[in-house]
Amino acid sequence: MLTPPPPRTRADVAARLPDDQARAWFTEALADATRAATAREAPPAQAPPAPRPAWQLRFVTAGRHCGQDAADAVRALLLIEARADTETLTRLYREGSAAERRAVLLALPSLVDGPQATPLVDDALRTHDTRLIAAAVGPYAAAHLTPHAWRHAVLKCLFTGVPLTAVADLARRAAGDAELARMLAAHAAERTAAGRELSRDLRHALTLTGVPTEEP
């Protein structure tokens, strides 16, 4: 569960739901999300503040209707189907449980082109919840985190036990990164000094930098 799955298709997700009742709920939830996306294109029918769209309540309650195993994928698909903008994503993240926050992070690469949602990734990377950290280091982080923030994200994964397979585009961003190599070597030296083993992931990341360091 620590390696976030790529966004799935409706059919994939529907096939993984526990029963027909969950599938019916999922179909209705997607229809709510589609309606919200379509309504946004039309002129506003009423003056703000408009009530919260129905799909957002579905987003919150997806776990108990679809089962926890499918909830990440269901929530991410609802966000994509509703074409949630950064403002909505930010609010749903801030008001969300850890599970809801994870879904927002997983949907970012499909919904946000620029760096404007990086504060959400930064927030997740400040936690020690490995499920949030793993969801935060996906393709959106690879595309938009600054070099400093991205290096700390890699190190945070090593510290908290998130497998580096969760880090999108690791090989490309690590290649030739002398500063990352220095940080990894320092981390390795600290572990060696404490008599602790070096993980395979740590050695692997050092290798990916392609920067020669003193063998710890």
Binding site: L2, T130, L158, P163
Partner: peptide
């Protein structure tokens, strides 16, 4: 309870660097 599967690497509740 879904138990996180990264505990072989250390436990984030124990602050990392274990």
């Amino acid at each position: 309870v879904p138990v996180p599967d990264a505990l072989h690497e250390g436990n984030s509740v124990l602050r990392g660097g274990e």
